[in-house]
Lab assay of single mutants.
Amino acid sequence: ETEYTFDDKREADRAAKEAQNNGLRVHVTKDGNRWKVRID
């Protein structure tokens, strides 16, 4: 399990989409004014 934090939602969405394309499970959550992408 890996977690990334992004300031920009577009960057978070791009990272999530890339991980999904690689067959990974992805969870995107909002943390204040930042975005967390957790990859299982």
Rank of each mutant, 00 (worst) to 15 (best):
R34F: 07
T2A: 11
K17S: 10
R25W: 03
R14F: 09
A15E: 03
W35C: 05
E18M: 10
T5W: 15
E18V: 12
R34S: 07
K36W: 03
N33H: 07
R34T: 04
G32W: 00
N22R: 15
E3I: 13
L24Q: 08
E3P: 02
D40H: 13
L24G: 05
G32C: 00
Q20A: 12
D40I: 15
A16E: 04
K17T: 11
D7A: 10
D31N: 06
A19Y: 10
W35P: 04
D13L: 15
T29V: 13
R34G: 07
R34L: 06
R10E: 15
V28I: 12
A15R: 09
H27D: 07
Y4F: 13
R25M: 10
R34P: 00
R10G: 14
R25V: 13
F6H: 02
Q20L: 14
D13Y: 14
D31K: 04
V28E: 01
D8Y: 06
D7Y: 08
A16N: 01
D13V: 14
F6T: 03
R34E: 05
K9C: 12
H27T: 15
F6Y: 10
E18C: 14
N22A: 14
A15W: 15
G32Q: 03
V37C: 05
Y4T: 08
D8V: 05
K17F: 09
A12V: 03
N33D: 14
K17R: 14
D13P: 00
G23K: 03
V37I: 06
D31Q: 07
V26A: 14
K36R: 12
Q20T: 11
A19N: 03
N22Q: 14
A16H: 03
K17G: 07
W35G: 03
N21Q: 13
F6I: 01
F6D: 02
E1F: 15
A15K: 12
D8G: 04
D8A: 05
F6E: 02
E11Y: 05
E3A: 05
R38C: 10
G23V: 01
T29F: 11
L24S: 07
R34D: 06
I39N: 01
D13H: 10
E3H: 05
R14H: 10
R14E: 12
A16R: 06
E3F: 08
V28Y: 00
N22M: 12
T2V: 14
T29S: 12
G23A: 02
A19P: 02
N22D: 08
D31M: 07
K9M: 07
K17P: 00
N33G: 09
A12K: 01
T5V: 14
A12C: 06
K30Q: 12
N21D: 13
T29Y: 10
K36A: 06
N33M: 04
V26E: 01
A15C: 15
A15Q: 06
T5G: 05
D40V: 15
V26L: 01
N22K: 15
D8P: 00
K9L: 08
A12I: 00
E3W: 12
K30N: 07
T29Q: 09
D13T: 09
L24P: 01
A16Y: 06
D8N: 13
N22W: 00
E1Q: 12
K17Y: 08
R14N: 09
E18A: 11
G23W: 00
R10H: 14
K36V: 15
A12W: 00
E18W: 06
A15P: 01
T5M: 13
L24M: 11
D40G: 13
Q20K: 12
K9F: 14
R10Y: 13
A19T: 02
N21W: 05
D8W: 03
V26G: 03
I39V: 10
A19D: 01
A19Q: 04
V28L: 07
R10F: 13
V26P: 04
Q20V: 12
E1W: 15
K36E: 06
R10L: 13
R10K: 13
G32T: 00
V26N: 02
R25Q: 11
H27P: 00
A15G: 01
H27R: 12
R25T: 12
Q20G: 07
A16L: 05
Q20H: 11
R10D: 15
G23Y: 01
V37M: 02
I39K: 00
G32E: 07
E11K: 07
